[in-house]
Design a protein around this nucleic acid. Structure first.
Lengths: 354, 354
DNA sequence: GTTAGCACTCGCAACACCAGAGTGCTAACG
DNA sequence: CGTTAGCACTCTGGTGTTGCGAGTGCTAAC
């Protein structure tokens, strides 16, 4: 009764690997459980269906495949996809045509930072027929670069806070009466002197100092409080923003034809906290990361995989680009595209900030 | 054989109106075709089912109701909803409890402009159990308010463009070599002097003037070109951005259980051009506008309704808030909430800019 | 170790069937 | 003349049955 291999995860010999791979690729192509006979025909394996069945049984015992039910073909498990992805990730690379197309798209865009993320997301969506994702590069600790103060109305003024890493934030402060332009710019000058180059923590320290100062104008203190708050919020947010494109592509996948499963997808996309966790995890490695189905999150992520890669300057600011699609997704394409796009984003960042 | 009324759209007597309304409200509540018997029972009408049937037949002849098939109950047509909405729009208003809840939520938010739109969308989503929408108030013609110029790297600089109406745009320009801070701020000063308060057209004019000037630094010209471009793009864009929230609410509606119809919803949301058209149409009226199903756009909008209202300062900057949901949506709630929230947004704008 | 053969298992599509809800019409009623 | 009761008819949706086909797992032969 003993199979050649019964342990849940022993190393696989070549043939088993080939068959596992064939099953997965077939399943990815058709979305249908794949049977032994269909497999030998379609993939021209030079063994009989019976042999394939034996191997499949082993793969199932080892946890790489499952049965939806007796008498249905095999379907990959998350572990199966994982094995497959580990195998292909190192060697996959995007075809030269696809590379050219993507590079061409990137050539079109102006140097307006926000455009990039949209573009990256759109490009990935197009290249992989899945949803494309991109987040701006966010520093671990933001620094103040410039502060503008502008009066809107007799009773309010705008603070425009430019961050060192390229972001701009805006907020309002109440003012007591109409101020002369000089007063306003005096306060702005004061704030810039004190806060330029400061991190959130340093802003907080400066704020306390400012409060002690009897000569400090009330407006300066109020504005400083607001700025401290903005810096803190910015650092606290896991991800600044997530641009996505091509959600409709994901809708087309047959596994999402019932809206049940769809909810998961949108849940993930709207859950910025969760994405933040992912970003930080991905940021640590410097190659593409594949997150398969429920490996990470119990329920919500069932049926969904993410292919992500970091870009930016480690130690400074890091963002993520990637693809979201069904677990049954064309991984080689996805991995290749994401890797290539993250490379392009790196180039751009280098060009602009070094 | 002749019915009392055969023309497709004569005025309705009171009883017909009541019954139409009852059918619609019942259908909104249950999502099931409503039959004569069920109607008299649930709504305690003091007529017999047979009478109701007769009236329903008339309403159907007049185009306000349909049959999915013989021997099913009645379902409202778009025209039916339209009639219903026209009836209720003038008188509907949000209950005091709901008002309080919404106002409370708005009280929580800081004076950070971007937050408002998110908040408005989120609030509407929560209050109506549909998707909430909000766009920033966008002026017909933007004006420059302040320009900052900051060096990023030896070869690039950022332009931060603050608009009079509260928006901030960012872009990059190449620079030839590392400039001293003074040079950079000299250029910035020049740009501010020339462009402050300028519309896109005026910026373009100034740009030509600048080009003629032999003494103008190359950087100033390049930056000015970029700014001109940004202003033009900003004016050209129909909508600056559309915040949405609560898409998952829409997913719950039974009519969207097949993904077919869902696609339409997302198609609409991602089609900023289309939304732009709607915004401009809505902006002209000063009360809530209801767009029902395919009334506007042939296919994509089938099964989807929008309840929209403009806010802002007519002549200056106008934005839109609203709700997107199934055609079979709780219109009174939706209309009331949208009206109330647009009122709140108006208050905010007034407070800040007057 | 591989393969052919075979019995067995399910899911799935097709079909028939019935119950229930709802209609439209006609005729009676006030 | 509008309203109502009665009735025959229609159509959907759920349920039970059946047969087919794909696919498996096992055994025995190669």
């Amino acid at each position: 009764m003993a199979r050649r291999r019964d342990r849940p995860s022993g190393p696989l010999d070549q043939r088993s690997q080939d068959i596992l791979r064939a099953v997965i690729e077939e399943y990815i192509a058709t979305a249908l459980p794949v049977g032994s006979q269909a497999l030998v025909e379609r993939r021209r394996l030079d063994v009989s269906p019976a042999t394939v069945r034996n191997v499949m049984a082993e793969l199932e015992a080892a946890g790489y495949l499952t049965h939806p039910h007796t008498s249905a073909g095999r379907v990959p498990t998350d572990a199966g996809y994982r094995m497959y992805v580990e195998q292909i990730t190192p060697r996959v690379s995007l075809g030269p045509v696809a590379q050219l197309m993507i590079r061409h798209q990137f050539g079109q865009v102006e140097f307006a930072s926000e455009q990039w993320f949209r573009l990256a997301a759109a490009t990935l969506a197009g290249a992989t027929h899945n949803a494309g994702l991109a987040t701006p590069a966010k520093p671990a600790a933001a620094r103040v670069r410039r502060i503008d103060l502008l009066q809107n109305s007799p009773h309010t003024a705008s603070i425009v806070l430019v961050l060192a890493e390229g972001g701009v934030k805006q907020a309002m402060v109440p003012v007591d009466e109409t101020l002369a332009d000089e007063e306003l710019s005096a306060v702005a000058r004061l704030l810039n002197e004190r806060f330029q180059g400061a991190t959130a923590a340093e802003v907080a320290a400066q704020l306390s100092a400012l409060r002690e100062l009897p000569a400090a104008p009330a407006l300066a203190v109020r504005a400083a409080e607001r700025i401290e708050r903005m810096m803190r919020d910015f650092d606290a947010a896991a991800v600044e923003d997530v641009f996505s494109d091509g959600l409709l592509n994901v809708l087309e996948a047959p596994e999402f034809s019932q809206s049940e499963k769809l909810r998961a997808v949108f849940g993930v996309l709207q859950n910025h906290e969760y994405l933040g966790q992912l970003v930080s995890r991905v940021a640590e490695s410097d190659d593409v990361q594949v997150l398969i189905g429920a490996e990470n999150r119990a329920e919500e992520m069932r049926d969904v995989s993410l292919v992500l890669a970091a870009y930016g300057r480690p130690g400074h600011a890091i963002g993520v680009v990637g693809v979201l699609g069904p677990t049954r997704m064309a991984y080689p394409q996805a991995i290749g595209s994401v890797r290539y796009v993250s490379g392009l984003m790196n180039e751009l960042v280098e060009q602009l900030y070094r």
